[in-house]
Every structure is written in structure tokens, then in C-alpha cells.
Design a protein around this nucleic acid. Structure first.
Lengths: 166, 166
DNA sequence: ATCAGATAGTTACCTTAGCTAACTAATAAT
DNA sequence: ATTATTAGTTAGCTAAGGTAACTATCTGAT
């Protein structure tokens, strides 16, 4: 059957809730919100098969691909969470042997963290495991839909980061 | 400056992590995952300003827009979570006076829930509050980007629901 | 040189979301 | 009637997120 993507929106696609009006930024925002919730719920379940929880994976990937050790404060900012949240998160990653702390010689308040070799390995494996289900969904899409998604991702990423916010 | 959206992807848009290769379904999945995490984190913070937590809002909106009372099992399925999760969630919504249970006369095992008048009201207010920040981000997008996002949403929704999964 | 303020993290404590396992209660099947 | 199945709940776990209050260090005035 025809993919739903190319038609702009057939009244109410299939979601049980489309919001009040059905068009405009509010509706868009609402559906985006809902889609994000369900996407993450789905990924969380897949990932429980021995992967890392999503926030830990996310933080670890900052460490691995961010190039070099960074401070907890920088990490908190990158991950858009409060210091205590990062603090705990790092403790857990540390207990799993995936990251290590290093002291800053100049300023002894700051703590820098970097991924261990095992952290890098686990990240890559976990990433694969986690996205495997997504990949199969993506593979099931038509080329057009996949291309559409790929093109809209930068936009998505910008608003996820809070562009146009303050 | 030019919006980043229309160009497919300028090497590394601005995210500190783009993944290993930088193309293919795995990369797409990875970035989608990351975007969803950050989007929800952002919304959670906005919403704490007196709104409901995201999962509660999501469940409530199923009740409000789903048309008529539904059983906990159906709700669990709609929300893609396990029964105990829904059970607790409903308890909380109930304590806030936003939903009510009703017994099924035919089968006394099942519990149906429906939103109260207050539930409907709170949903609408909460929804507005929650998406307000998103709306402002969306409003800051170019028309092209917004249209792009709108077109890709049905695809996003499908994969969020697990299409092509099993 | 000291002492007030700012900054980086941590600790303690709370709420919520999600899960599995084990349970109760009710219905369906043999 | 007994057994099996189904709907929800309870108990107990892990983890993410937050605020408030704390320690430790650094910076800047005086």
C-alpha cells in the first residue's frame, strides 16, 4: 500500500489524538512531542537487551566523539541537564568501567572525564544494538520516506537543541 | 545565514557527535535517537512549570481524544508500555482528579477509565504550556523547514510506533 | 594576607517512569 | 468442578530528573 509520507496529511493519519485544530505550529509541536515519547519508549525496550540506558549512551557518545576529556559542567551543558544529574550518571558509567575521571592540575575543583577503551567498545556495540530495531524500521521505509526523514533531521536536531529558544 | 535544513547535511551540522560513518540507516537511526532524547529533555523542563509529566499527558490525551472510556489494557497497548506502568500512571492521574475508573458490568476484571472534566481542561492547558516553547522554535524556522518537518512527521510517527518491527 | 563571593561538584532527598515477578480476582474451557 | 487464561495490582528493582544544601576551591577586594 501507498506510503503515508508523501501526502501532506490525510485528515488524521492514524494517531488517536491529533490535537484540537489539526494544523499549525501547535499541532506540529504536539505530534512531534508524542512521536518523541513513543520513539524513546520503543528504543528503551530494545536497548534493555544488555545495552546501556539511553542517557548514559548519549553522554558516553559525547565523550567518545567529542574529542578529548571534558569537564562535568561542560557535559551537563551539552546534555542539557543539571549538574547532579550528570554527576550521578558519571558515577554509573564509572562503575561500569566505561569512563574515568582525571583531575585538572590548574583548577582542583574541576573534574574531567574521558571514555575508557572499554567505553568506546561498549558504545559502539550498544549503539548498534540499540538502533538495530530502528534500522529495520528505516529499512522498511520507501526510499522517498527515508530521504525525507534524512532531510528533515537537521531541522529536528535544531529544535531539539532549543534553537530559537532564548 | 542560510538555514541548515535544505542542504542534505554539511559534513557535521553542529552536533558534537554524528556517529561513526556519517551516512546510512545506522547513522540516521542514531541521530534520530539522539534528537528524541534532547527534545524530550527540553520539553520536560518547560513543562515542569506546573504542567503534567509527559507520559501522563500522553495517556490523558488518549483518553480525551480517543473517544470514550477504554480499559487499562487497551491504554497500555496504545501507550506501548507494560500493564504495571499504566496501572501506576492511572493511580496518579486519579489522585489528581483527572481521570476516573468505572467498572465493567459484564466483565468484572476489567477497569475502564475516562477523563474527568477537569482532566480535559488540564490537558488542554498543559498541552499549550508544554508545546509553547516548541511552538516558538517552530515559528523561528523558515517556512520551508517547517513544511519539511510537517511532511516528515507521518514517517516519524510510523517508526515511533514501531512500523516494520514485528 | 585575609575574607567575601563566585564556581565546580557532590550529597541527600524527592518524584516519576519503566521493568519483571508474583499475586488476586474473575472468566473461560474441559 | 477443576484447570487454565486473562485483567489488573502489588512489591521491589533500576534509572533519570529535579532542588536544596553542602564542601572545596578559586578570585577579588580591601
Amino acid at each position: 500500500m501507498a506510503s503515508t509520507s508523501t501526502s501532506p496529511r490525510p485528515a488524521r493519519p492514524r494517531s488517536p489524538r491529533t490535537g484540537p485544530a489539526g494544523h499549525g505550529s501547535a499541532d506540529l509541536a504536539d505530534r512531534l512531542h508524542s512521536a518523541a515519547i513513543h520513539l524513546l519508549r520503543r528504543l528503551r525496550r530494545e536497548d534493555d537487551a544488555s545495552g546501556l540506558p539511553a542517557p548514559q549512551l548519549s553522554a558516553l557518545s559525547v565523550l567518545v566523539f567529542g574529542g578529548g576529556p571534558i569537564t562535568l559542567g561542560e557535559l551537563a551543558k551539552a546534555e542539557q541537564v543539571r549538574p547532579p544529574t550528570i554527576s550521578k550518571l558519571i558515577v554509573e558509567l564509572e562503575q561500569r568501567g566505561l569512563v574515568e575521571r582525571e583531575a585538572d592540575s590548574a583548577d582542583r575543583r574541576v573534574v574531567r572525564v574521558h571514555a575508557t577503551a572499554r567505553g568506546v567498545k561498549v558504545l559502539q556495540e550498544g549503539r548498534q544494538r540499540r538502533v538495530a530495531a530502528l534500522v529495520s524500521s528505516l529499512a522498511a521505509l520507501s526510499m522517498r520516506d527515508r530521504a525525507l526523514l534524512a532531510r528533515s533531521l537537521p531541522v529536528l536536531e535544531r529544535i531539539a537543541r532549543g534553537a530559537g529558544h532564548d
